[in-house]
Amino acid sequence: MFNNSSFRLIKIFSLIIITSICFSCKDDVALNFTDTSIIDEGETTIEINIPKADGKTEAAKQINTTLTKFVTAALNIEAVSETKTTTLESIEGFKKAYTDFKTQIGKTLYTNLPPWEVLVDGEIIYQSETLISIAMNSSINTGGAHSNLIFKFYNFDAKTGLELKTKDLINDVPSFTLLAKKYYDKELLSANNDRIEAFENDTFNLPENLGFSEDGVIVFYDTFNSSSNNVIEFTIPYTVANNYLNF
Score class of each variant (00 low, 15 high):
residue 195 R to F: 02
residue 195 R to Q: 13
residue 196 I to Y: 01
residue 196 I to K: 11
residue 196 I to G: 01
residue 197 E to N: 15
residue 199 F to R: 04
residue 199 F to Q: 10
residue 200 E to S: 13
residue 200 E to I: 13
residue 201 N to T: 12
residue 201 N to A: 13
residue 201 N to E: 14
residue 202 D to F: 10
residue 202 D to K: 14
residue 202 D to V: 07
residue 203 T to F: 15
residue 203 T to N: 14
residue 203 T to V: 15
residue 203 T to L: 13
residue 204 F to L: 08
residue 205 N to A: 13
residue 205 N to E: 15
residue 206 L to D: 11
residue 206 L to V: 07
residue 206 L to G: 01
residue 207 P to L: 11
residue 207 P to C: 10
residue 207 P to K: 07
residue 207 P to S: 11
residue 208 E to I: 08
residue 208 E to L: 09
residue 208 E to V: 07
residue 209 N to L: 05
residue 209 N to R: 12
residue 210 L to W: 04
residue 210 L to E: 08
residue 211 G to V: 11
residue 211 G to C: 07
residue 211 G to N: 11
residue 212 F to T: 08
residue 212 F to K: 09
residue 212 F to M: 10
residue 213 S to Y: 12
residue 213 S to K: 08
residue 214 E to H: 12
residue 215 D to N: 15
residue 215 D to V: 14
residue 215 D to T: 14
residue 216 G to W: 02
residue 216 G to R: 11
residue 217 V to R: 03
residue 217 V to T: 02
residue 217 V to H: 00
residue 218 I to S: 04
residue 218 I to T: 02
residue 218 I to N: 05
residue 218 I to Y: 02
residue 220 F to V: 04
residue 220 F to P: 02
residue 221 Y to I: 05
residue 221 Y to E: 07
residue 221 Y to Q: 09
residue 221 Y to N: 02
residue 222 D to S: 09
residue 223 T to G: 05
residue 223 T to S: 13
residue 224 F to K: 00
residue 224 F to G: 01
residue 224 F to P: 00
residue 224 F to L: 07
residue 225 N to C: 05
residue 225 N to A: 08
residue 226 S to P: 06
residue 226 S to G: 09
residue 226 S to D: 06
